[in-house]
Nucleic acid binder design. Sequence first.
DNA 1: CGATAGCTTGAGTAGATTCAAACAGAGTGG
DNA 2: CCACTCTGTTTGAATCTACTCAAGCTATCG
Lengths: 239, 239
Amino acid sequence: MEVIDIFLRKLRARHDISEAEEATMRSVVTPERTLRVDEVAIRAGDELTESTILLEGFMCRFKELKNGERQITELHAAGDFVDLHSFSLKHLDHSIMALTPCRISTMPHAAITAITEQHPHLARVFWFQTNLDAAIHREWELSLGRRSALARIAALFCELHVRLGIVGLTQGGEYTLPLTQTDLAECLGLTQIHVNRTLKELRERQLVHFRSGRVRILDLDGLVGVAEFDPAYLYLAHH
Amino acid sequence: MEVIDIFLRKLRARHDISEAEEATMRSVVTPERTLRVDEVAIRAGDELTESTILLEGFMCRFKELKNGERQITELHAAGDFVDLHSFSLKHLDHSIMALTPCRISTMPHAAITAITEQHPHLARVFWFQTNLDAAIHREWELSLGRRSALARIAALFCELHVRLGIVGLTQGGEYTLPLTQTDLAECLGLTQIHVNRTLKELRERQLVHFRSGRVRILDLDGLVGVAEFDPAYLYLAHH
DNA sequence: CGATAGCTTGAGTAGATTCAAACAGAGTGG
DNA sequence: CCACTCTGTTTGAATCTACTCAAGCTATCG
């Protein structure tokens, strides 16, 4: 499979991308490279001149407090433009790291400038993608601020089920998610221990099974109900 | 004072805006109108054809759970483009309401399309503004997920001190913030009662006073310390 | 086979919530 | 002008969700 196919698949889940636009993007991406587990790809504050496209694996954006506590603010899956926002921000207020081994490619900011000036539609598509990240942030704020631990985990599993489904990374109600319970805890604003207990409850309620890096949804309706999950914030309803 | 001066002041805090760009924006904004307290200006899901600029007062974006619990995901102050993201999203996943009486103006999406195609620099400025909202969302995720109640309130007061300072709405360490404790609770993922107790503690520690809609910072360094507030996420340093 | 990372469980605790009640201030109508 | 109401604030007591500390378990890997 060609390098950035999965990236195009993600864009096409929400937009019509022409052959010409596709060709333009293909022509400006750099050769892929790999990241090790826990490798910090982008450090808060660094001056950036290119944006990263995730082709395989899971990455995350995170912020930290002085005591070492970490909050993951968004999970990234294959196909995501993980730091497109650095194009206009120039440096980031947070860091981005690999949670699993990853393959990535990049798009130089100079190329993005050219694209946005020559392809107004693509400019709006890119802008949309960063707005989508913001929408995910807002949904996570709702989880962190108001959802119970049980609903929080349920909502995260629902979100990933949809997002991974778009790019063909689900098998029915199952998908690979090679994160530790500690990683999940850092997404959810909980402790690893409480995540463990809550996963047990989700399992006992026959809603979802999380084991050795794989999510098996046993009762999607039930899970959606517990989470009060409404996928509207993922903006998939086509235009 | 001219209608959208405060909006331009906010943009100019982070970007150079030319006379021509200013003139273009002035020519496309609609006459101002007012909102009552608690008036929902934009309802989740509505098809939108214009974006709203807040000229005076406080508004918020929020999401709700079925039991009526509400999470405010961002506060908006005078000068903010409260739903610029609706330009590319077309409808929103959340609602936006007035927390105080407000004066607003709007910019039609058709005008924004024209601006972005004819003024590439302004296009990037607008994109930047939505990325700034996302940065604020991320910082709030950190608060909601990892900060204690005390640090959370402190961080919010620090953020507003900076954001209101940009547009000239602070008087030294003081500013007007006509929100109820319930409003604050909905920003912070806490109950009103716990907000009340925590405000008391901030007062007793001589860090900040919040009373009848006014914030008086007594010890800015102390407040910043408690919050671990780093204004980097507000992107004021460079252009 | 020991070392390490990750998962599981138990016991005790703390931070925040719920429920309840009272108080303060602003606005309204008799 | 006072009684009344409404909204918002304050405080107390009891409770609960999630956290901390501690220990043991499991699987993997050199």
